[in-house]
Amino acid sequence: MGGRDTTLVLLDENGIRCDGRKVDEPRRIMIKAGGLKNADGSAYIEFGDNKIIVGVFGPRDVHPKHMSNTDTGILRVRYHMEPFSVTERKNPAPSRREIEISKVIKEALEPAVMLDKFPRTAVDVFIEVLQADGGTRCAALSAASVALADAGIPMRDMVAACAAGKAADTIILDVNNEEDQAGQADMPIGYMPSLEKITLLQLDGVLTPAEYKKCVETGIHGCKIVYELQKKALTEKYFGNGEK
């Protein structure tokens, strides 16, 4: 494990990235629907070396009561990292980063869920990052969509998420931890493929207008790959292998 950032080659002359991937290739992704006994819905995702569990409860009574809305159900999201999920042991108290990510994930899921049929209730989404490796918010959002569907929350579409970015002056799909640290840009995207709507979009780094366009296209392409795996996970749980 001698390689440090100074010697790291993000993209070699054959267009191969530091972890052996091509520019438009995502990391290994595995999604499983269900798995938790007590949650109303759950999902587990491995996205590269990210390992994340999501549990959903609800719609259910809202505590504290004053948070409830008489016109619609509300969505609440908590993104949380375990102390052992990162290199340096993380303080168990919620960080500003975790609070912001909870918010952007919630807002990315809002356009998908239909809670107007459940006034005065809450749907709680609990995201637990067991191991982090760059791109946790996209992996978490993708798993959260599967867990919500598993819980039977009505949804217009599932939100699939994947990041695109720029490293070694090239637009790449699914930015890993090294590329995030040493690269030039990182753009997480959440997307509802059937409705063709972007529900999460952030950018760290500098892109030309042309690169910006390419980056969004690349990210959406990644979301569509994730979407197929989300559908596969739910199909396997609910319909076994006997498709149709």
Binding site: A112, A149, M155, P193, Y227, K231, L234, Y238, E243, K244
Partner: peptide, 13 residues
Amino acid sequence: ENKRKYVIPGDVI
């Protein structure tokens, strides 16, 4: 041909 289909959210029926 088959009128009954297994579906998940987002599937275009």
